[in-house]
Write a protein that binds this DNA or RNA. Structure first.
Lengths: 236, 236
DNA sequence: TATTTTTATTTGTAGGACAAATATAATAGC
DNA sequence: GCTATTATATTTGTCCTACAAATAAAAATA
């Protein structure tokens, strides 16, 4: 018998069946303390249990698979898996579809993270890594203005040195959006000379403290902070 | 005629058809510069275009709907939408299924963000907000140790004052995981007296600089930094 | 021209089918 | 009884058809 929408499952809310099944499944996994590797019920059982078609269950599971939360081993069943923290945001960081507000937020998030990581950077940096960083800068000494690739190489290395993979990956995801926002805002402007160069930063990294480094980084990033209407507001 | 897996679309990679259609669609939207509000082709056209069943297209679209990237208006077609930056990570922050590494990363990310936001906080805080913050603290003056809710109220207000919704929402998502990690690590420990209280922080917020505030915040968070094996490593 | 009626479109949901590979059970051989 | 082979069952991935319901578009009517 066809299940019309006149049953108890009538969408009283705006949510589709798929939305609700997705929520139900996550709740079910949490309530029953499913851990990575644990086998899950098969799709048909889920469907009958939740009183929906297998189609709806599969659409919900498709989402959870995308997040890395469940893993389907074809013809052997599904298991719980360790989700990929950034899988979702990674797919969505497209400057063309993000709102002005979101772009602003991302722009600032990069600055916030860059300023906040100093303690971890200093706690974990190794001599070998600092030397690798120096080699990256040495390769850049030739040119005048740095390309985006060179900026990414330098800052990316710093992220790596902080010893937090999620932080590093997150920052690397933000950078393209960051650059897009900056170039949009400065369409008509001339380029601002860098008050603190990458070479200067390395000196502080070698001989200074975490706090010294942050202050230097702030100056290095000051052109971007100015773009955020930060200094102006701060001044008044 | 049934499409067996002996066609050109044979999964030479590990990706399922749904995975590949999801990628194709995102690529298609990007290449054709789809912007929020733009109408999308209907499901059947997508399916025939990509040479897959409508089912597969719907499983891929289900993912993009979850991310807020596309919006389906039942019986009127689909439109591009502005994705929710944190929709993905929000569903995945379950301490029970996250790896030790991810939990560590999240724990540290909160500290990093808390330390990095000082400039924006000082640039945007208003007198009214500071007063609201004082009221929050006043309500807490009674007790000895602060509850998690009181901590969240105070720090959440600070996030709000920084004027970056994504940052604020992100931090609020991290906090429960942060607390979980901390309580796990300190199962056997006594509670560490807070060297810098919320009241102290407000004083710096009112009379100090962004940098003063960060230093005070560092001390306020020092019990957590110690947990990160930061100070030990830093000392050697 | 304005209003009503009919038709077409489109998503959401249900349900059936089957290929292919794996895991399990059953059978055969020794 | 034990091992090796064969048969069966299970399960995901994919395809297909169907249709309710609401909207938009077209046609018919006043």
């Amino acid at each position: 018998m066809r299940k019309t929408n006149t049953t108890l499952l009538t969408p009283v809310s705006n949510l589709s069946m798929t939305d609700r099944v997705e929520n139900s499944l996550r709740q079910y996994f949490e309530d029953n303390k499913f851990k990575p590797g644990d086998p899950l019920p098969n799709e048909m059982d889920m469907a009958t249990q939740l009183n929906v078609s297998r189609n709806v269950v599969r659409e919900a599971l498709s989402r959870l698979r995308m997040l890395g939360m469940v893993e389907a081993r074809p013809r052997r069943g599904m298991v719980m898996a360790q989700p990929d923290l950034l899988a979702g945001i990674e797919k969505v960081l497209n400057p063309m579809i993000l709102s002005k507000d979101n772009l602003k937020d991302i722009f600032e998030m990069r600055l916030i993270l860059e300023m906040g990581v100093s303690e971890f950077l200093f706690a974990r940096k190794t001599k070998a890594q600092v030397q690798e960083l120096e080699e990256i800068v040495a390769r850049q000494q030739n040119n005048e203005a740095l390309t985006i690739e060179e900026e990414v190489a330098f800052h990316g290395k710093l992220y790596e040195m902080a010893g937090n993979d999620t932080f590093a990956r997150f920052q690397n995801l933000l950078i393209p959006v960051f650059n897009h926002v900056f170039s949009e805002r400065f369409r008509m402007h001339v380029e601002i000379p860098d008050p603190v160069t990458h070479h200067d930063l390395i000196e502080v990294l070698k001989n200074g403290t975490a706090d010294d480094f942050r202050k230097a980084m702030y100056k290095h990033l000051s052109p971007y902070y100015h773009t955020s209407n930060i200094s102006q507001v701060q001044a008044k």
